[in-house]
Amino acid sequence: MKQYIMKSNVFVIAIFSFFSYGATSQTINNCLRLAEQQYVLENYYEVIELYERVAFFGKDSLQLSDYINWADSYRQINDYEKAAINYEIAANLAGVNDSLRTYFFLKVSFCQIMQNHYQESLVTLYNLADSLPEKLEETKLLYTGITSFKLNQFDEAERAFSSYFSNAPYQQQAIGLFKKNKRLESRFNPKKAKVLSILLPGLGQIYYGDTRSGLNSFLLNGALMALSLNYIVTYSFVEGFLAVGPWFQRYYVGGFTRAKKGAVDKIEMERQRILVELLAMVKETN
């Protein structure tokens, strides 16, 4: 019996050895070809998986075009952090060609903007060459404008957008928007909103345009003040102070703290609107 089992084992091994000549595992080149096919088919998750496999087993096999496909795939699935890393590698691989190198660094900058890494994006943009082909220069100006705007460097942002809009009417419109932006700090002054709410609850909110919240604060504080006075008149000063005082203090302080924060939020919202308007103008010019 034992001899029979041994014989059958040898037989199976012999058959498998015979067929193993025809069976080969997936090579790195197969993986790369498959990744390219999947990229064309827009199966980005598969593309990423395949390039990750290649990078694990043979990183040296990855070429410039592979890094571009890999980065694009990450961008398509909104993984901007990894997309930026791969665009940066692509930029370094394209070292001999300045335009191509700049093109990929602009992609890196875009990914950094999408991640709200404005400071890093600005550093990437400042590291680009001073004179660039027209299209690349336009993109550089656009991204410089956006990042500077988000970093509250409005003079730099105005310079970038003014240079971007070569067309006079658009340029004037952009300058007008930046003038409007400069007025925001004085129009919705957070300190003024806070002081107004200290003087009369709700006034600060009405000052920056939130009438509903202003009336809400006024009525709430008014009601608590009236209740407090009622307690003082009916019982005693100590009673009124201890029973209703903490509630009044809570909503009074809340009122002027929120008035200041509301004014800051309002400025931020208006700035966002201005940036969206600027981008709409950019879209029109394209």
Partner: peptide, 18 residues
């Protein structure tokens, strides 16, 4: 592709409104 990027940027800042 820059047009696509512009659209993404516009979308990002439009959706960031309060």
């Amino acid at each position: 592709q820059d047009v696509n990027e512009l659209q993404l940027l516009s979308k990002k800042f439009s959706s960031a409104k309060k």
